[in-house]
């Protein structure tokens, strides 16, 4: 019996080490290579611009529409709750703080992972499966410098912009519902918001969050693509893993960052 348990423990340990610890090590080394080969992404910025188009511009619509909807829901739900305490005038505060501190970076990050992250993984994975990366290497061009790094930086640049857009659209959505539809006083909506949203504490911290999420999602996406087995199943599996892993990473990092940033306030 003890033998069986020991056997199970050993199998579990091997799984953890092989699937997580070992892969994490490879991924960190990959990130280091990417950073080291990042020169061309900035010297020839049009490479990165192209990828910003695919990662950022093409995510614009989904991010803006989602932000608007989330803000409207916050307006409705927030009003419903606040009115019971007779403090519907702090609706602006509620909407803005929720978005800027939490929902902006987190929901935009999740959408970004499934919209842009999966596309990056699939694209790099397919390039690998069709030997495009090998061909590039044979042409004495480093695929990490030419393919991976521009996508990585495009994601890192796009993500904070998208999160800010999400929050801004959300505040606007909350305004539409709260002020235009329900009739909360416009003046107190904005002034209450402005009185309690702090630039450094809330806006900057939200920005830092979105930047960290952007790094995490794009790192996972380029790594999974580059590491994908060069087959159809391999690429589709890697794409799924990108979405799952980066969503988990966003939520876990959010806990850590929130604990660090908003401690005791």
């Amino acid at each position: 019996m003890t033998g069986r348990i020991a056997e199970l423990m050993r199998a579990l340990g091997a799984r953890i080490v092989n699937n997580w610890v070992w892969r994490l090590g490879v991924a960190i080394r990959f990130l280091w290579l990417t950073l080291r080969e990042s020169g061309p992404s900035f010297r020839r910025f049009h490479l990165t611009i192209r990828e910003i188009y695919f990662a950022g511009v093409l995510s614009l619509v989904v991010i803006m529409v989602s932000g608007l909807f989330v803000g409207m829901v916050l307006g409705l739900q927030g009003y419903d709750t606040l009115v019971r305490f007779g403090s519907s005038e702090v609706l602006g505060t509620l909407v803005a703080l929720t978005l800027v501190r939490e929902l902006g970076p987190v929901v935009a990050g999740l959408l970004f992972a499934s919209r842009a992250g999966s596309a990056i993984t699939a694209e790099i994975g397919l390039m690998k499966a069709t030997e495009q990366l090998a061909a590039m290497e044979m042409m004495a061009v480093d695929p990490i410098a030419r393919v991976v790094a521009p996508r990585f930086w495009a994601g890192v640049i796009s993500m904070p912009v998208l999160a800010a857009l999400f929050s801004a659209m959300g505040v606007f959505g909350g305004y539409l519902v709260g002020v235009r539809l329900i009739g909360v006083d416009e003046g107190s909506f904005w002034s209450q918001m402005q009185a309690s949203v702090d630039f450094r504490e809330d806006i900057v911290n939200g920005f830092i969050k979105s930047l960290v999420f952007g790094i995490a999602v794009t790192w996972i996406a380029v790594y999974e693509g580059y590491d994908a087995p060069p087959t159809a199943e391999g690429v589709s599996g890697a794409t799924t893993r990108t979405v799952v892993t980066s969503s988990l990473a966003i939520l876990a990092l959010d806990v850590v960052l929130t604990a660090l940033m908003f401690r005791g306030q």
Partner: peptide
Amino acid sequence: FAVIGIGAMLFLSLKVAN
């Protein structure tokens, strides 16, 4: 994209955080 993004950040900084 950059203009819209900067606009959103300005909106958050000036209008939301005042």
